[in-house]
């Protein structure tokens, strides 16, 4: 009986966590699409007056030039952390590290590419 209770508590704790974590697709839709576009090609609704065009996430050549660590850093700490544009803000207060890691994998899916 105590084992069952522990399992139940564990399950409850896990489901709360699972609820709090968003899917990478939803996070992309919420925060990335405004600049990187609904198809990920860098043509979001915000780009009209930008001096630097957002990265095209479907560009396999450019995206394979960035390691997963670099992409993680850019999302978490913003463009300037990898010597890119200030227009890419830091999302570290919005997304957990785990969510950012999954978002990096989402980008890999969009570019259909790996680093190197």
């Amino acid at each position: 009986m105590p084992t069952k209770l522990v399992l139940l508590l564990l399950l409850a704790a896990f489901s709360v966590q699972a609820q709090a974590k968003e899917t990478p697709a939803d996070n992309y839709k919420a925060y990335c699409v405004q600049c990187h576009g609904s198809d990920g090609t860098g043509k979001g609704v915000n780009v009209r007056d930008m001096t630097v065009v957002p990265r095209d996430h479907t560009d396999a050549k450019a995206m394979s030039g960035r390691s997963d660590e670099t992409l993680f850093k850019a999302i978490k700490e913003g463009g300037p952390s990898i010597e890119k544009s200030i227009l890419m803000p830091p999302w570290g207060a919005t997304l957990s590290d785990e969510e950012i890691k999954e978002l990096v994998q989402h980008l890999r899916m969009l570019c259909k590419c790996k680093f190197g």
């Binding site: 915000n46 007056d49 463009g79 227009l87 803000p89």
Partner: peptide, 20 residues
């Protein structure tokens, strides 16, 4: 616009800035 990047998402005049 240049140092903080807020213009990415916000208009600072009716025809200049981001729209989300």
């Amino acid at each position: 616009t240049k140092f903080l990047g807020c213009m990415a998402c916000h208009l600072i005049e009716p025809e200049y800035g981001g729209l989300s």
